[in-house]
């Protein structure tokens, strides 16, 4: 359970990178902080995770000073548009809906999403089979879009953070939840909390809602998108990406 401010983006701290820094304004990056192992808060309040490391690596590649700005998930895009930060590195999928409001870099990873329910659950993932079932997802995600479209009769519960979703799944308030498979494994199933729970059904196949990979969002027309795409390609090529990837996952999560 997190008791944190709702809409106020709190500046987490400037992180100086490398000697001989470029003199430009620091690049402000919006991150989430409640989505382990992609983005999480350590006991001392510092941020860590795959998204955070990628963000810092990209800053180093661009030779820009960076500042991480924490923002709760459902205000992520509005805060970007309101100029609270310049880019979002928060496991955000590139979807049609979002492309109407923001631009994206090329993807920096791509992993599927899948339902999680109590071990041995036999829910049928059809509109009839899920009617009345309590399904929890993070508010304002591609998964909300998918559940509303594919399972209109389910009792959809929307949460502020993914940690709250897991808490209610464990408490028995939810029949199942849907999110990114890697996050579900490392943030829940492989933790003591996730004992007795397992994946249900196949990976979700819904490109219209779920998009094609996870990118870095920037404001419409910002040339930062192209710079970030080049930087992603560069850290892929020089082994930085692989090093970060291997620190968190057994497989390369970049996808095809």
């Amino acid at each position: 359970m997190t008791l944190k401010n709702k809409l106020l983006a709190s500046t987490v701290g400037a992180i100086a990178l490398m000697a001989g820094m470029a003199t430009a304004e620091p690049l402000r990056i919006g991150v989430e902080g409640a989505y382990p192992p992609f983005s999480q808060k350590e006991a001392d309040g510092s941020l860590s995770g795959f998204d955070i490391d990628i963000a810092l690596a990209l800053c180093a590649e661009l030779e820009r000073e960076c500042e991480l700005v924490e923002q709760e998930w459902d205000g992520m895009i509005p805060a970007l548009i309101a100029n609270k930060y310049d880019a979002i590195v928060a496991s955000m999928s590139i979807t049609e809906d979002r492309l109407r409001l923001v631009d994206f870099s090329e993807k920096y990873y791509q992993t599927p999403s899948r339902f999680v329910a109590a071990e041995g659950a036999t829910f049928e993932l059809t509109p009839e089979g899920t009617a009345g079932l309590k399904i929890g997802v993070l508010r304002g995600t591609t998964l909300q879009c998918h559940v509303e479209k594919a399972f209109p009769d389910a009792d959809l519960r929307l949460y502020n953070t993914q940690e709250d979703v897991f808490a209610d799944l464990v408490a028995g308030r939810l029949d199942m939840q849907l999110n990114n498979t890697l996050q579900a494994i490392d943030g829940f199933l492989n933790t003591p909390q996730g004992e007795g729970f397992a994946f249900l059904g196949d990976n979700v196949d819904d490109p219209e809602c779920l998009g094609e990979g996870t990118g870095i969002a920037v404001r419409k027309g910002d040339e930062l998108a192209a710079e970030l795409s080049t930087a992603i390609a560069a850290i892929r090529a020089d082994g930085t990406y692989a090093a970060i990837n291997d620190a968190y996952f057994d497989v390369d999560i970049y996808g095809e």
Partner: peptide, 22 residues
């Protein structure tokens, strides 16, 4: 609305979340 009920603010947050609005 913070504990998933769809009250007035909950609906407002749903709309904002669904269409990425402020």
């Amino acid at each position: 609305s913070t504990v998933t009920l769809q009250d007035l603010l909950g609906v407002g947050r749903w709309l904002n979340g669904r269409y990425y609005l402020a």
